[in-house]
Amino acid sequence: MEGVTAPNVSPIETLSFEAARDELVQVVAELEQGSPTLEHSLALWERGEALAARCEEWLLGAKRRLDEARAAASDEDDS
């Protein structure tokens, strides 16, 4: 099974956006290369889905923070 790695076992909820994004890129590349077994492909797919959800979580959080900062700036301008 040269070139094929097991899905990372780091808890997804502890990953930074950058770490989750980088691992997701690796998972996608590995899926594109094809896995030796269906089970391995499924494990990669599930990990990828969870990583994508983690990235989306981070992005939504960042958007929320930006929206709050813009609202606060707007409130200051109105004062």
Rank of each mutant, 00 (worst) to 15 (best):
M1K: 10
L60Q: 09
R70E: 12
D78A: 13
V27K: 09
A53I: 00
P11N: 10
E56T: 04
A52C: 05
S10L: 11
R21N: 10
E2A: 07
C55G: 07
E32L: 11
H40R: 15
R64I: 03
A43T: 00
V9G: 06
A50L: 07
S74G: 00
R47V: 00
E32N: 11
K63V: 14
S16I: 08
S41T: 09
N8S: 15
E2C: 01
E13A: 08
K63M: 12
K63L: 14
V9I: 11
F17V: 11
L38F: 12
R65I: 02
E46W: 11
A6Y: 08
D22E: 02
V4D: 12
F17E: 13
W58S: 09
D22R: 03
P7H: 04
G34I: 02
C55D: 08
R47I: 00
H40A: 08
S35G: 02
K63D: 13
E23P: 07
P11C: 06
L24Y: 15
E49I: 03
E30L: 07
P36D: 03
V28L: 11
V27H: 10
L24C: 12
L15E: 06
W58I: 10
D75T: 11
L44P: 07
L44Q: 14
P7R: 04
E30C: 05
E18R: 13
L38N: 09
H40E: 03
R47E: 07
S41E: 15
E46V: 14
V27S: 14
D78N: 06
L31C: 05
G3H: 12
A19T: 10
E76S: 01
V28Q: 14
R70D: 09
G3P: 02
L24H: 15
E13M: 01
E49M: 03
S35D: 02
A6D: 12
T14A: 03
A73Q: 10
C55N: 08
F17H: 15
L31Q: 08
I12S: 07
A62I: 05
S41W: 12
R47A: 01
R64G: 00
L44F: 02
A52P: 00
L51T: 06
L38Y: 10
R64Q: 12
R64W: 06
L66F: 09
I12C: 05
E23A: 04
E32Q: 12
S74C: 05
P11Q: 09
S74K: 08
E32R: 13
H40L: 15
E30A: 09
A29V: 00
T14K: 05
K63F: 10
N8R: 02
S10Y: 02
D78F: 07
S35Q: 14
S79Y: 06
E76T: 00
V25Y: 04
Q26T: 04
T5K: 13
D78S: 08
A29Q: 08
A6P: 10
S74E: 10
L15M: 14
V4I: 04
A43L: 09
D22L: 01
A62H: 01
E46N: 15
Q26L: 12
V25D: 11
S16P: 07
A73D: 12
V9A: 14
T37D: 04
V28C: 09
S79F: 07
V4H: 14
G61W: 03
E23Y: 09
L66Q: 06
L31E: 04
E49V: 06
R54M: 03
G61P: 00
T37W: 04
D75E: 14
